[in-house]
């Protein structure tokens, strides 16, 4: 037994879960990448997922909006089961924003067009309204003066802030971050983390795969540690960093904190 189901059950008790993993298993060919994932996220909760590379943390977060398919168990997002039903997947993707490690902005569109694309085509927002909303979010990530440039003209940190604004333009109920600062120069990490902290303060439900332990300490409600496709330990940041329960967690923390 690697993971204390009871603790999470208690943490989740009393409030509705917006994301729920029930005994989820996934394989890439023969490789068992996710093993018996039981896990839930409450509305408004900020979760940081950490762990060594290859531990399955990105795969897990990508199962939430079905960029990856799981083969066993069930995942409920906002009460909707993620299965082959395309309608369900589209409904969930409208409400779940995602920020990627490599930004994945669309290089052939201006910043403004990147932000308005999904609202116009998926939400059917009138163009003018979508542009106003886009400018609002660009101002929030302090980049409104770049609206008419192309992604290739922006720095990495600026591009990632645009990517966050692009996610917010769909007015999502959940934001997923898949290593949002891993591809950035050290000087640019802070500007992206600042935007994410601001977002957390506003009560957005966030699931964030990251190696930024400072961010985990200040922002997370819970830190989830994964290794070899399993959740080893999930706890409040205070307990997680000061009193890790599991040997594997202690080893991981000693390696990333003492270098």
């Amino acid at each position: 037994m690697t993971y204390n189901n009871l603790a999470v059950a208690q943490l989740a008790a009393g409030e509705e879960a917006i994301i729920e993993f029930q005994d989820v298993n996934k394989w890439y060919g023969d490789f068992h990448v996710l093993k018996h994932i039981d896990f839930s996220v409450k509305k408004g909760e900020r979760i940081v997922v950490c762990g060594p590379s290859g531990s399955g943390k990105s795969t897990m977060i990508r199962c939430i909006n079905r960029l990856e398919e799981h083969q066993q168990g069930s995942i409920l997002v906002d009460g909707i089961e993620m299965n082959d039903n395309l309608k369900n997947i589209e409904t969930i993707r409208k409400d779940v924003g995602m920020v990627f490690q490599h930004f994945n902005l669309f290089p052939h569109l201006t910043i403004l067009e990147n932000l308005t694309l999904a609202p116009i085509w998926v939400r059917k927002t009138p163009k003018k309204e979508a542009e106003e909303m886009a400018m609002h979010y660009l101002e929030r990530v302090k980049i409104a003066n770049q609206a008419l440039k192309y992604p290739g003209q922006l720095s990495g940190g600026q591009q990632q802030r645009v990517a966050i604004a692009r996610g917010l333009c769909m007015k999502p109920r959940i934001m997923l971050f898949d290593e949002p600062t891993s591809a950035l120069d050290p000087e640019m990490i802070k500007e992206v983390l600042d935007v994410m902290i601001q977002l957390a303060d506003e009560g957005m439900t966030m699931v964030c795969v990251t190696h930024e332990m400072g961010f985990a300490k200040t922002v997370a409600d819970r830190v989830v540690f994964m290794d070899a496709g399993e959740i080893v330990e999930a706890n409040t940041p205070h307990e997680f960093f000061d009193n890790p329960q599991h040997d594997r967690t202690q080893l991981f923390l000693s390696q990333i904190l003492n270098h």
Binding site: N65, H102, L105, F106, L117, A118, V122, M170
Partner: peptide
């Protein structure tokens, strides 16, 4: 890059929308 397909999918664009746009 695969990321472009994924970003389009993650936004909720349909197959034809993500291809054409």
């Amino acid at each position: 890059p695969k990321g472009q397909y994924e970003a389009a999918d993650a936004m909720g664009l349909t197959y034809w929308q993500s291809m054409i746009l």
